[in-house]
């Protein structure tokens, strides 16, 4: 299981890109942290999620 923003999800084995493609997240408006480290945008397709990972997806909305 992978914890995504606090919720356990059965997505171990998928890449971050594969996981994101199945969600509503807009890839241009997010930053992804895996186990407390930023995942480089260029690495989304190469980063395979492992059992026990913690993923934090920060999605930005407009306004400032």
């Amino acid at each position: 299981m992978v914890k995504v923003n606090g919720t356990e999800r059965d997505i171990a084995g998928k890449t971050i890109l594969e996981f994101l493609a199945a969600t509503e997240y807009d890839p241009k408006r997010i930053a992804v942290e895996r186990n407390q480290d930023i995942v480089f945008k260029s690495q989304y397709g190469d980063t395979v999620l492992e059992d026990g990972d913690t993923l934090e997806i920060v999605s930005f909305v407009g306004g400032g």
Partner: peptide, 18 residues
């Protein structure tokens, strides 16, 4: 980061952290 536009916010955050 004090931008208005969400894509600019994400660009800056990713860029700085990377």
């Amino acid at each position: 980061e004090a931008f208005d536009d969400p894509e600019a916010k994400a660009m800056l955050v990713n860029g700085v952290l990377e």
